[in-house]
Design a protein around this nucleic acid. Structure first.
Lengths: 127, 127
DNA sequence: CGGAATCCCTTAGGATACTG
DNA sequence: CAGTATCCTAAGGGATTCCG
C-alpha cells in the first residue's frame, strides 16, 4: 500500500492521526507546551476545567504518538516534565494557527450562532 | 468583559469555538469544501465512513457558526450545495496545514505507537 | 436527492476519592 | 506531586427506516 496518503480514506493512517486532533484537549495541551518543558500540575492549572485523569490520558496518547516526551526526575517530591518532540513542534505551528483563528473570530461566531438560533425559532413558530 | 481572548479559560468564547474543531468530522468536511461548492451526496461519498445523520448534524453546526452556507436549488430532483464562507476560508488554511502534517507524518506516528506498545508490554511483563 | 426521525449503544470524559 | 482507581452519565455517533 504505497498509495498517496488520503485523509478522506477510512483506513488511511493519516485519518487515524487526524482522529487524535479531534479530541477536546489535544489542541490546548499542545499549545500549552509551546514554551518548553512544563510540569503536570502547571499544565493542570493552565488548562481550566481539565481533570487529572483526562490530562494523564491525553498526555499518554500524545507520548505514544511521539508528539511529547515524559521525563521523570528522581526527586522528592516527584517532578515530571512534559515537552514537545520535534514532531510535536512541527504540529504546533498549524495548531496554534487554529487557536489564533478561534480567538480572533470567536465574537463573530458567537454572534452568528445567536442570529441562526433566532431565525430557526421564527421558522419553527410559523409551522 | 474585554479581556484578551484566552483559549485556556473555561468560559472564553474562543474555547467554545475550539470545541467545534474538536469533533471527528469538522476538519474533514472543511477540507472537502476547499475546492468550492459541493453537493451533499458528493460530500458523503468523499468522506468515507460518515453517516448522513452525522454529516447533516455537522454541516448544520458549521452553518450556524457562519463557516459554511447552505443553498437549496428549487429543482427536481432537489439539489443542495454547501460552500465555505469567508470565515470558513480563513479557517481552511490552518486546518489544511494540519491535514498535511497528518499525511506527512502518519507512517512515523504509527511506528511510534507500535514501539510504545511493545515497550509498555515489556514493563507489564516484569511486574 | 437530501435529508428527518428513531432506536440504540459505546465511550469520552466528568466527579470524587485515594496512594506511592 | 503526580498520578491511579471507581463510578457514572451525557452524548456522539452508528444503523436503519421513512418522507417531500
Amino acid at each position: 500500500m504505497d498509495l498517496p496518503p488520503d485523509a478522506f480514506a477510512r483506513e488511511c493512517a493519516s485519518r487515524v492521526v487526524l482522529d487524535r486532533i479531534g479530541d477536546r484537549w489535544t489542541v490546548l495541551i499542545v499549545v500549552a507546551l509551546a514554551d518548553g518543558a512544563i510540569r503536570f500540575s502547571q499544565l493542570r492549572s493552565r488548562i481550566e476545567g481539565i481533570t487529572p485523569k483526562v490530562l494523564t490520558q491525553t498526555l499518554r496518547a500524545l507520548e505514544r504518538d511521539g508528539v511529547v516526551t515524559r521525563t521523570v526526575f528522581a526527586e522528592v517530591p516527584p517532578r515530571v516534565e512534559y515537552e514537545l518532540t520535534e514532531l510535536g513542534r512541527d504540529l504546533l505551528a498549524p495548531i496554534d494557527a487554529i487557536r489564533i483563528w478561534a480567538e480572533q473570530h470567536a465574537a463573530r461566531i458567537v454572534a452568528n450562532r445567536g442570529r441562526y438560533d433566532v431565525a430557526a425559532d421564527r421558522l419553527r413558530a410559523r409551522s
